[in-house]
Write a protein that binds this DNA or RNA. Structure first.
Lengths: 343, 343
DNA sequence: CCGATTATTCAAAGCGCTTTGGAAATGATT
DNA sequence: AATCATTTCCAAAGCGCTTTGAATAATCGG
């Protein structure tokens, strides 16, 4: 059923029905009620395609996912981010358009989606240190919101980030306070902006205590479980093994724990582990007391907030770009303890 | 730039330009080339909203995600499924529309998306044993494809499923062959169709060897890591603890491993674990040799296949519904070994 | 060189909605 | 009762594309 048929059935003009349904004031409440009730009774829903052509808005937000980056960003964190953002979209009448593309086609995908008018705005995921997408989207003149930051992009842009550096300073300080001096860093891929900031936090915390970071105790890769295992396993076999690890996510931390136990050592006693915890819903950091001591920030809440802000921006572009920086909280679990006495 | 402006710039009619761009034969190759080159040069992309209104197709596939089911289905498996499906969509000119809704609104969401004409078809995720969505979508007359099965729905519908029962028969048989007789089942939520089939597989394998399943060794819940930990932890403290576990996913299996090690036992020696492995990209079951012995089937490949089949169905509805059943493969890792000798 | 084909191109009519500019009906004010 | 302001409703013009039906240009056999 379309608007013409529906309004004929009601004996009203298409204009009146449209206005009644869209909450315009030029229609009496009695008429509005009659129209709304009839719409429900007949299951009438305005055709979205026609509606968006007429209004010029698609009511869709674009998320472009480069297929190979999935390890680093998409999978672990992504599902929770999406859940948060999607909730907000739903409440505001928006839908989420997701486009999975090969890495080479990423920039093209943003451009096409924007030019085709398929979306009213974008969420930009997983920015690198010098992300070309920001300049592109600014050139295209379409609203967008970055989850994270891109250090080398000097023009302002809307974004929300966790204070990754501070979080890693705190995590490293926590271990230093416990007397650890050989601390391994199991980081994410260095091309990701967040990974660089985390490393800076780790390095500057060490230097603040007069400890020169040891390159052989720092590594970076896709944040999988086996990566955490292998990196920790190798480091633990060094002549001067670390007594503690800082990990970029709970996923490699699980691998680190496995490596520790495989080596016959005890987590939180012989070797301490602290990680960044995105509060992933299906990998909760314990129920009740945390498994890992961690610096935590909910990626799902970040998804919600990014969505809210992007929708605001679409409705009314802000005079100056929005920038939010969230502090991670420190939660203490059983994976950390005093550095073992030197023999 | 719109079609009118673009075609004026070329000195051609809108018809000719449209046909040139859409590959219709009524236009000379010379003209087509000229139009295509100009489109690239000027960055012209036909407005998708207008296009879909004119053609009556949205070129979007809907995925409805009930927000609270995320633990069970969305998170772990979902990201990989989406990556597979999204790849296929991209290749075929489709986009993915994702709608995150509260559980109560799930059915309504399908109906609205269909009635509004926002999507040309749906992928149905995580069917329960008697899933109402199948009847609804059939009533709405919109193409859809189910990932999984719904046992109690007797009418045929398009679907692809893993042979969950067989996979769990094989997993349980594998443990029985190793001499285990007390085997715990750490299953997913029972309302999910796959969880029931898996339990049936487990139970029938035991009965085939004359072992009556012990209710106290069977549990079902959302498949998180802490759930696996708690369930295994509790079972291991029984007077007659299990010597092996069958787990529904690698995520609770990680928790089971933690519980085993916490109890001072050795995985693959004192206690064996076998799990179902969806081949999740960021939780790979080891690199090289598998961490867990498992029955494996790639959920990403399933996503690809479901997308391909749905697109075929949209293009041309099949005379009889499509049904594919995939067998999981058994991969042997280090998490299983002979049952310890009784004392 | 002409009428019949065939290859190109075009004008105009939708697709189903929103929204502008008015008209009709109602109520308030003199 | 006449005037004016409000309220309520409507006809018609887009939104930017595809596609039908028709016109024109090019090609060909005789």
């Amino acid at each position: 059923m379309n608007l013409r048929e529906f309004s004929e059935k009601l004996g009203l003009s298409q204009t009146t029905v449209s206005r009644a349904l869209n909450g315009y004031p030029e229609v009496s409440e009695a008429t509005r009620k009659r129209v709304q009730d009839a719409a429900i009774a007949h299951g009438y829903h305005p055709n979205q395609r026609a509606k968006s052509l007429a209004t010029g808005r698609s009511m869709q937000i674009g998320h472009v996912i480069p297929v190979s980056i999935q390890h680093e960003m998409m999978n672990v964190v992504f599902a929770d981010f999406i859940a948060g953002a999607g909730e907000v979209y739903g409440r505001n009448g928006y839908d989420m358009l997701m486009s999975v593309v090969s890495d080479d086609d990423e920039v093209k995908a943003y451009e096409e989606l924007a030019r085709k008018g398929s979306v009213d705005g974008f969420i930009v995921h997983g920015p690198t240190d010098d992300d070309p997408r920001i300049a592109l989207l600014q050139k295209l003149g379409i609203p967008f919101f970055v989850h994270g930051r891109s250090t080398d992009v000097r023009v302002p842009y809307n974004h929300l980030d966790v204070n990754n550096k501070r979080a890693f300073v705190r995590a490293t300080d926590f271990l230093l306070d416990l007397g650890h001096t050989r601390i391994g860093l199991i980081n994410g891929l260095e091309r990701m902006d967040f990974a660089q900031r985390r490393r800076h936090g780790y390095v500057s915390a060490l230097r603040a205590r007069g400890i020169e970071p040891d390159q052989s105790l720092m590594c970076s890769d896709e944040m999988t479980e086996p990566y955490g295992y292998k990196a920790a396993h190798d480091m633990l076999r060094k002549t001067r093994p670390p007594t503690a690890f800082v990990a970029s996510s709970i996923v490699p931390a699980l691998g680190i724990r496995r490596a520790i136990e495989d080596s016959g050592l005890k987590l939180g006693k012989d070797v301490s582990v602290i990680c960044f915890d995105d509060a992933i819903s299906y990998l909760p950091n314990g129920s009740g007391e945390p498994i890992f001591t961690a610096t935590r920030s909910s990626v799902r809440d970040a998804g919600k907030r990014c969505a809210e802000l992007l929708i605001d921006i679409i409705k009314e572009p802000p005079a100056t770009p929005i920038a939010e920086l969230w502090e991670a909280e420190l939660v203490v679990g059983n994976s950390t303890g005093p550095a073992p006495a030197k023999d």
